[in-house]
């Protein structure tokens, strides 16, 4: 199979500013970014509490969240589909086959990743961080923030991981979004569709975008780690 010609066409589509292609890219980006932006704060707070507080069933909650990390996203999509479908409990909101449905799916997929990474980061933090903050007069929320700041790169790795997972996710987006051109078609669902039609150029172009996003985020993380004084 000739890979050169579709790759050349892919670059042409990207550089020519093909509106259909860029609409797909834009949808993927904003839905993913918004899902992570909305989920990160509560998940990080929950992860901190889960790591620090002793309560009955704490271990079970962590094990459940860890299990959710490998939960098939298509099943998450199915559950959200049933909830949002016209006869479902949330059907009145008419969110199915809209970008908002995809975003809800992404939020559910991101939840265990964000929480588990935060739990791991906080449990791995030096216990003197929190104690030092408290002893210097910080109230509990401020001491928690200080601890999270000290392990920020591990927490950010969770955010990057969650973003990487949702922006490349197909099953859930396909089920609850419906892959409707111009409305809910995003990068992974478009790649799946174009490839099934034998239209490799657009698939390759979108693949390049996904790779560029992944590399860009990791370069940004590495740069921030450098600025943070880590060697």
């Amino acid at each position: 199979m000739d890979l050169f010609e579709p790759t050349r066409q892919a670059f042409h589509l990207l550089l020519a500013g093909d509106p259909q292609l860029w609409r797909i890219i834009w949808l993927s980006l904003w839905v993913s970014v918004l899902a992570i932006a909305l989920m990160a704060p509560p998940c990080i707070v929950f992860g901190f509490v889960l790591a620090k507080r002793q309560f009955a069933g704490q271990r079970a909650v962590v094990v459940l969240l860890q299990a959710l990390l490998s939960f098939p996203t298509v099943v998450i999509g199915l559950v959200i589909y049933l909830l949002l479908s016209r006869r479902g409990p949330l059907g009145a909101f008419e969110l199915l086959f809209t970008p908002w449905a995809i975003m809800i799916g992404y939020m559910v997929i991101a939840l265990p990743i964000l929480v588990v990474f935060t739990v791991s980061a906080v449990q791995g933090a030096d216990p003197r961080v929190y104690e030092t903050a408290r002893s210097l007069g910080a109230q509990r929320p401020r001491a928690a923030l200080t601890t999270l700041w000290e392990v920020r790169f591990a927490v950010m790795a969770g955010i990057v991981n969650a973003f990487g997972r949702v922006i490349s996710e197909v099953g859930c987006a396909l089920l609850v979004g419906g892959n409707i051109a111009g409305i809910t078609r995003n990068i992974p669902t478009a790649i799946a569709l174009e490839t099934s039609k034998g239209e490799f150029a657009q698939g390759i172009a979108l693949g390049f975008v996904l790779i560029a996003v992944a590399i860009g985020i990791n370069v940004a993380l590495a740069w921030l780690q450098g600025r943070g004084g880590l060697e």
């Binding site: 030096d126 003197r128 961080v129 104690e131 030092t132 002893s135 700041w149 000290e150 943070g228 004084g229």
Partner: peptide, 15 residues
């Protein structure tokens, strides 16, 4: 806590 300050044997300095 505003008046009592404890310094660890191996103090932790924030990054």
């Amino acid at each position: 806590r505003r008046e009592v300050v404890y310094v660890h044997q191996q103090p932790y300095l924030f990054g």
